[in-house]
Amino acid sequence: MSEGAVETILFYAIAAMSLFFAIATVTARRLLRAAVALMFVLVLSAGFYVMLAAEFLAGVQVLVYVGGIVVVIVFVIMLTSSVDLLEERPPLLRKALGALAAIGFFGTTAAVYLTTDFGAAADAAPPAESARAIGAALLDYGPHGYVVPFEVISLLLLAALVGGIAVARRSPPPSQPLTSGGDLPGEVSFTPPKRQNDPEGGASHA
């Protein structure tokens, strides 16, 4: 068995597993199970990245996607008490429509790929250390660098964090008087002890 054959077999094995877990992600009736399947898809994608000589990316994938995003998803499944919930089966019509759209998309796309000449595969050697090359590209402020999106995404992460906290926050901090700003009516309804003896808050809530 040559190296090429091993790679070929590996590709099909991981691809098959990936597709299996992807389908499990979208069909599992227990959401927690779907999240675990999603985790497997993402880990297997990290395997793909290794095969494509993108080792650094594989690491990022596992750290951020599996270690971060999937964990957040699992948290939310628990916070919205969907853990034990069996999702109702989608109606047959909806399933059929979904399958039709998915197969239609796959058929069209695959047909296009099979007939497209993507140009000869270039033969250059990949950079010895992809991490170093990516790091250099991210901070390169020349005509081939990506320093602008690197700065933009820092702002995006900050804005997402601030926005996320603002939306998910339960009640105003203790230092903030309840009689302030536009915060009043909605907030009061979330402090149960106050609710009973606060006719005004209750009235505006009703």
């Binding site: 906290i165 603002a166 536009g182 915060d183 009043l184 009516p185 909605g186």
Partner: peptide, 16 residues
Amino acid sequence: DGRVKVRVRGIGLRGE
């Protein structure tokens, strides 16, 4: 800032 007759429920956090 709450300079309204009819308050919008739950809106706030001006800085954010």
